[in-house]
Design a protein around this nucleic acid. Structure first.
Lengths: 242, 242
DNA sequence: ATGCGGCTGATCGTATACAATCCATGCCTA
DNA sequence: TAGGCATGGATTGTATACGATCAGCCGCAT
């Protein structure tokens, strides 16, 4: 599940770390877009779902809030985050800045074993697409980027990117135009080829274009469609101004 | 204190948010290098110091752990993080990647009011240095970078940088060669001049050089010098090896 | 009929109690 | 005397109890 390579820092997560378990479960559910933006994450409900107390649930929700994919409102509870267009632009700006550089490092550093793993990953992506397993396809698609970050060797940036990709999932869920998965596997294959050739010029450029393509599929700019209405509804049907 | 601009997301932090209060207090103490790396942060002690229960203390410590400036070891407790040389290099790599870009954005976006605030900030820095107030000088020095990030308008990256600067404080505390403050105020003034001229070429370069200078003052590579001794002292004066 | 005020149920915020774990000291044995 | 083991104290991990706050509902007055 790739999270091994991007853990929160403690390596001793055997079976006792309940917090981590439900944190990952919610994280995955958000990435796979099973939990739509704005969904209420009641402490009691979440706790019951995983058979843990509110203490654990709470810690997990707070951690996710720190990662930016959950919003906590005082005395109201936790919700799956609903990034506004401005935040969406900032997330993409951050990715455009960080990922090409990570890709260049990866192009330099990638070993034969890394490439083999990437190949296997691409096959899994293709397979998921082939059998119309959209959830798996989306998750693997995002994981591909994380694997590159992982190869680059900078754990600090890789960690940051992990949060950014999760937020991207939310952004795509809200503003995505096409119902296709987040990334095309073709561009991933192209990236793989460049990495395999250790092309330190081409690979970052390919990543940049790839990100541009993802962002181009978004419909930022005008009103976020149902988002504003939904917000109004959720906050008590009080019309904001007019 | 600048944190207003970089809060955790909730704007309703009036007086009830105890967690935030002690989180900021510990954060500041770490940035100002009053809490050396490796210091044990006992839940009971911290809680007593701020007159809150362990619940609150715990949440604050976990949040700081997520930011990477506190390490939590299961059943052992929380400690001020002690970044190893590799992590230090990664933090600086991340800063070299992010900050020049933020600086360029700031050079483009900065208004007269922004510049006035920066000027006032520089004066405060100079004043702190003049009266040998090392703690304040260090904190303001780091805050200067955050203010630039703030001006750039990308809150996502600004938030990331906030964590990075805090970690930088720890790195300087461990590996810093000179006992001078983290950054020279002269280079900050130079940066200010470039921002004032909206120099989108020069400002990022100046920032890059500035970061290089900070990193050049570090002594990575060999053993972390006094760090090991400090750990021994804090852990009960049991001589580690010789 | 409509708007306002108090009430009730539910949810969150915080504190505390209890269990589990670890570290250290001291004793016993070889 | 040195090493290993058992025990005690301290600290953290988890669960739960209680108080605070908020949203929605009902009844009343206008």
């Amino acid at each position: 599940m790739l999270n091994d390579a991007l853990g929160t820092g403690d390596g001793t997560r055997s079976a006792a770390d309940q917090t981590h378990r439900i944190q990952e479960a919610i994280y995955d559910a958000i990435v796979e877009q099973r939990l739509p933006p704005g969904t209420k994450l009641s402490e009691a409900e979440v706790g019951a779902a995983f058979a843990v107390s509110r203490t654990i649930t709470r810690r997990a929700l707070h951690a996710l809030a720190h990662a930016g994919i959950v919003t906590i409102e005082r005395n109201r509870g936790a919700f799956v985050a609903r990034p506004d267009p401005e935040e969406a632009r900032q997330v993409f700006a951050a990715r455009r800045l960080v990922e090409p550089d990570l890709t260049r490092s990866a192009a330099r550093a990638c070993t034969r074993a890394d490439l083999a793993r990437l190949r296997k990953h691409l096959d899994a992506e293709a397979a998921a697409l082939k059998r119309d397993d959209r959830r798996t396809a989306i998750r693997l698609s995002g994981d591909f980027h994380l694997r590159i970050a992982d190869i680059s060797g900078n754990a600090v940036l890789a960690r940051f990117l992990r949060d950014l990709t999760a937020r991207t999932s939310l952004i795509v869920a809200i503003y995505g135009r096409s119902r296709a998965s987040a990334c095309g596997v073709d561009e991933h294959r192209e990236l793989y080829e460049m990495l395999a050739r250790h092309d330190e010029k081409g690979a970052p450029l390919a990543m940049l274009h790839h990100l541009d393509h993802i962002e181009a599929d978004l419909d930022l700019g005008d009103a976020p469609d149902g988002a504003v209405d939904l917000a109004a509804i959720l906050r008590g049907a009080a019309a904001p101004r007019d």
